[in-house]
Nucleic acid binder design. Sequence first.
DNA 1: CGGGTGGTTGATACTTATCAATGGCTGTGG
DNA 2: CCACAGCCATTGATAAGTATCAACCACCCG
Lengths: 295, 295
Amino acid sequence: MAISTAQEMEQPQNGNEFDIERAVIPSEYTADEVPAVAQPRQMHAEKLPQPDNVDSAHGLLSCSACTAYELGLCAAKRKKVAEADWPDDMPAFTSTVHTIPARRTICHPKEWSEFVPIICQGWAVSSIALPNGRRQILSFHLSGDFVSTTSLLQPTLGRTVEAITAVTCRRLKRSDLKAYLFAHPDLLEKFARTWIEERTQADQLALDLGRRTSEESIARLIMHLAERLVKRGTMNGATMEFPLRQRHIADATGLTPVHVNKVLGAFQRAGLIEIGSRSLTIVNEAELRRAADWR
Amino acid sequence: MAISTAQEMEQPQNGNEFDIERAVIPSEYTADEVPAVAQPRQMHAEKLPQPDNVDSAHGLLSCSACTAYELGLCAAKRKKVAEADWPDDMPAFTSTVHTIPARRTICHPKEWSEFVPIICQGWAVSSIALPNGRRQILSFHLSGDFVSTTSLLQPTLGRTVEAITAVTCRRLKRSDLKAYLFAHPDLLEKFARTWIEERTQADQLALDLGRRTSEESIARLIMHLAERLVKRGTMNGATMEFPLRQRHIADATGLTPVHVNKVLGAFQRAGLIEIGSRSLTIVNEAELRRAADWR
DNA sequence: CGGGTGGTTGATACTTATCAATGGCTGTGG
DNA sequence: CCACAGCCATTGATAAGTATCAACCACCCG
């Protein structure tokens, strides 16, 4: 695993103090709902030095990996690029920024919304639930992720989206975004790449759920998250922020929390990983890779 | 289950005689590969009366459900509509029609292709395989299905596509299709609906694989196929063509063929379904629905 | 007629779920 | 500040679900 930056972690519970507020909220954008940040059990404050693959001008660590940033839709980026570089018809997107406290639902599956949500900061999760309580997690959303590309065309998401940590979420008005993308085929194509990625992930998920052992699934989940965090430059050596509950892992892999616990215990006893205070360290990457049947 | 048409089925093995050849292959289109139709074990000839929701002018039963037809990309449809109704810039798509014998591979996962494949007739399946032989089926393709909407933008499919029955497959040149769709936002949006459907299916697949019992999964697979066939008007009462091997069902549901056999046996003994000579009859729909935990 | 594929069945093993009990931690309210 | 409630992690005992193995049969095709 490539390690991109060193950074401060492990600053245990500083209560309600979140640096998430640093998220750029340009004055011309309405922040129509900023609920009080509430009881996170234990969160890592995100006082991170800027890795050099990221533009420090706007203060968002993960922008380099962000789809909206890449599409030129991010307010932070718009601020800093010369006006001349922007398409003339760059619309004034209606967009709002929300801060959602940990463990709160962000979208309901049948909720009608005019907006396309993007996760700017924090961890979120989307899932489908059955009436009888069984639940399948479809994906974890990290900073810079569209919640789902389908939201470009559908007012309803068909999934439940929940904040795991406190989350900063930007919402672009669908009609604006759609008009803009459809008018710019090159951007539309870039957007479509995100869709293809989503699809590839969905295929892999099916493969994992249908044809892998519990140990493989869990190891793969860890590898996958680590890989994504590396891309964002938010790994600290072999250690990553890991706000997931065992319940999340269970719902993502189709297992029970109890069984997840046993496998995780086995991994730790075998010296593959270490878990503690909402962080996870990959101790023996080679072995974990093997356990994950990783490429 | 709504039953749309009555039709002839159960004409056991008439050897190599396939009505699939009726598929329209306009002379201006090259059929660059028409391998000899080979050893189907037992196939239902498709001498079907035209249901009234379908245009009988072009002889393809399922066109009404076909994405390409809807987009105006189907040669059959182009033939019969007044020229004036077509966009002026309707391109001369480079397109080929192939007939693939049963049980043959249509696309390899890493095969580079300039074309977007559409299944016109027959059953196909796409899957991912692991080096160790485990395999997950991602979807069954019936007549009128794009194999994957991702093929619009990606030269490589990332999946194996195989014919189950003999298959007629049209391939549209990607660059042509892409240019055309990007120039017609309304069509592009229609196309995107197909993508959304694919995505919804992928989500449901994950839910089924991760959170359902073997019986539910299998019952759901049957319900799902029946529903799709009804849309195409190819159900005969409660009976449908059913060319799947138990191996297919196993690979689609993440189970073993042996276990699938036992569940299927139980379903039949319980009077839910009947299976015979490559066809499946839903005997007790209400119960099957319940077993499938169907909406 | 013979070979191969696919369906069927029973015995057994393994993986994972379920149940139950315990203890730690965190946030809450007295 | 302390006690308590609730959530989460942990562990062991047991049960259920599904896989594996093996044998046999039926059928189709060459």
